[in-house]
C-alpha cells in the first residue's frame, strides 16, 4: 500500500467562509490521503471542518460565501480544483460519490426511488430502460431491501429511515465509484439500524474494492470500520495514524480526551470524562495551538506558537509538541 500513489490526496487545503465582516476559517490547512480500497475516517466535533474538507473534494463548497483559498486536491494525480464544472460533473457520482447524513431529506420526495437510482446511472452511462431496471433491482437487492421489484415504485416517504439510507447508498454505488464519501451516514438512524448499515457499507466496500472516506463524530463506529483515522479539531488535523495507533497510543490531548469520554465497560459506575469548554468559533480562533484553552497539558509556548505535525511512528503523526517529545 505504501508504495502506491494515493487515490485522493489533499495538500494544505484551506476553505474559508467569507461573512459580512469576518472570515470563518472552516478548514485551515488540511492534508489527508486515501488509498484505493481503504477506509479512512475523519473524526471530530461538530463544526471542526470534517464535512467541508470532504465536500471540497467534490467541488461542492457553497460559493459564495465559501471559497477554497489554498492547497491542492489530487484525485488520481489530477488537481480537481483546476477542473471546470463540466469535468467535475463527470467525476461526481461516477468516480467520487457521496452519502449524506439525513436519509429523510436526501431523497427527492416527488420521485420514486427507482427513478432516482436510475437517474444516478443514466447521468453517466447510456443504458436501455430494461437494463436500467434490472440494474436498479440488483442494486436494491444488494442493499438488502426486500422485494426490490415492488420497492422500485415506492416514494421515499413510504420507506423507513434505514431503507432510505440503503437507497442512498445504492445511488452512491450505482456507477461503481472509486471513492465513496459517507458523511455521518448513521447519525440519523437508531442503533440497531446503524449496525446494519455499517455492515452493509463494509460488505459492499469489500465487493467493489472501493475506498471510503467516512466522516463521523462517533469513535465507536471508527474503531469498527476504519483502516486509518484523522482526528480534526478547529479546521486542523491534530492526529493521524492507523486505527491501532490512534486508539491504543493516542498522543494528542484532544484525541486522548475524546477516547476518555467514550463509555466503556471498565468505566462502569464512574463519571465519564469530559473535555472542558467548547470548540472555538472558526472566525475567532485562539492564537497558537487552537486547543490550548481547553488543554490540561498546555504550556506557555502553546499560546503563541502554532504547532506543526510531528512524526511519531510509521504513519502516526500528531500536532502536539508538548506530549510528542516525551513519550
Amino acid at each position: 500500500m505504501a508504495f502506491q500513489k494515493p487515490l485522493l490526496r489533499t495538500e494544505d487545503l484551506k476553505v474559508y467562509f467569507y461573512g459580512r465582516d469576518k472570515i470563518s476559517r472552516a478548514v485551515d490547512g488540511v492534508s489527508y490521503h486515501i488509498h484505493a480500497g481503504e477506509t479512512v475516517c475523519l473524526v471530530g466535533e461538530s463544526g471542526c471542518g470534517k464535512t467541508v474538507s470532504a465536500l471540497a473534494a467534490l467541488g461542492l463548497i457553497p460559493s459564495p460565501p465559501g471559497k477554497i483559498v489554498g492547497g491542492r486536491i489530487l484525485f488520481k494525480g489530477t488537481d480537481i480544483l483546476s477542473l471546470d464544472e463540466d469535468a467535475m460533473q463527470k467525476i461526481r457520482g461516477n468516480q467520487i460519490s457521496m452519502v449524506f447524513q439525513e436519509p429523510l431529506t436526501s431523497l427527492n420526495p416527488v420521485f420514486t426511488i427507482g427513478d432516482q437510482i436510475g437517474e444516478a446511472i443514466r447521468t453517466h452511462e447510456t443504458i436501455s430502460q430494461d437494463a436500467l431496471d434490472k440494474r436498479c433491482v440488483q442494486l436494491l437487492r444488494d442493499m438488502g431491501i426486500p422485494s426490490p421489484e415492488q420497492r422500485l415504485h415506492d416514494y421515499p416517504h413510504q420507506l423507513s429511515g434505514g431503507q432510505r439510507q440503503r437507497v442512498m447508498i445504492a445511488m452512491a454505488l450505482a456507477c461503481n465509484p472509486d471513492l465513496m464519501i459517507a458523511d455521518e451516514p448513521t447519525t440519523a438512524l437508531d442503533v440497531t439500524v446503524q449496525a446494519q448499515i455499517l455492515n452493509l457499507l463494509k460488505s459492499v466496500q469489500e465487493k467493489a474494492s472501493m475506498a471510503v472516506l467516512y466522516i463521523t463524530h462517533d469513535l465507536g463506529v471508527v474503531s469498527g470500520i476504519a483502516d486509518r483515522v484523522y482526528v480534526m479539531y478547529a479546521g486542523l488535523i491534530v492526529e493521524e495514524g492507523n486505527t491501532r495507533q490512534v486508539f491504543g497510543n493516542a498522543v494528542h490531548p484532544y484525541t486522548m480526551g475524546l477516547l476518555a469520554s467514550l463509555p466503556d465497560r471498565k468505566k462502569r459506575g464512574k463519571r465519564l470524562h469530559n473535555i472542558p469548554g467548547t470548540v472555538p468559533n472558526p472566525a475567532y480562533k485562539p492564537d497558537g495551538c487552537p486547543f490550548h484553552p481547553r488543554c490540561s497539558h498546555a504550556v506557555e509556548s502553546c499560546k503563541t506558537v502554532e504547532p506543526e505535525m510531528i512524526p511519531l511512528e510509521e504513519g502516526h503523526r500528531c500536532r502536539c509538541p508538548v506530549l510528542a517529545k516525551k513519550p
Binding site: G93, M98, E102
Partner: peptide, 20 residues
Amino acid sequence: DFVSAAKALGLGNFRIIFRH
C-alpha cells in the same frame, strides 16, 4: 439535502432545476 445529493451525483444545473 436532495439538491446537494443530486449535485453530488454529477447532475447538471439545468437538470437539477427543471427536473428535480
